[in-house]
Computed example of a mutant assay.
Amino acid sequence: MSDKDVVTAVLKHPKYQELLRRRNRMSMQFFIATLVIYAGFILTLAFDPELFGSPLGPGWTMSIGVLLGVLICISAIVLVAVYIYFSNKIFDPLIKAIVKDVS
């Protein structure tokens, strides 16, 4: 089988179409989640900067902005971990099945 035939077989494979559909849907969901998190942070910073400078509570030295910045970093780590989990559980088996069927 030539390289061109392999590519054509992969592109027509129903599991490849399912892989594309699932990966695109998941990527869009992660994009929206990331957009909401970061845009919310930036818009709050732009329109209510005093909120970020205020302390968490009376007597606290940490500001709300610092806490939100740390939470955004943690959310990025969590989103990457969730994507890796789904990639290993959903996408990798589909890719292995496609390679097995086409080879």
Rank of each mutant, 00 (worst) to 15 (best):
N24F: 04
G40Q: 02
K89C: 06
E50A: 13
F31N: 03
K15W: 13
S63P: 05
F91E: 14
H13S: 06
Y83V: 03
S27D: 06
I32G: 00
R23F: 08
I42E: 12
K100T: 11
Y38M: 10
S87I: 00
V7I: 15
H13Y: 04
F86P: 00
D48V: 12
K15F: 11
L35T: 07
R25N: 08
P93E: 01
S27E: 05
P14I: 08
E50D: 12
Y85E: 07
I95A: 07
V70Y: 03
P58S: 10
V99D: 13
S87E: 11
A39H: 01
F47A: 06
S54T: 08
K15Q: 15
G59S: 03
G65E: 02
I74M: 06
E18W: 08
T8E: 15
Q29I: 07
G69H: 00
T61Q: 14
E50S: 12
R21K: 11
N24G: 03
L51R: 09
V6C: 09
L20E: 10
F41G: 02
V78S: 08
P58W: 01
I37L: 13
K100Y: 08
P49C: 04
V66P: 01
Y16H: 14
I32D: 04
T61G: 12
V66M: 11
I32P: 00
D3Y: 13
R25S: 07
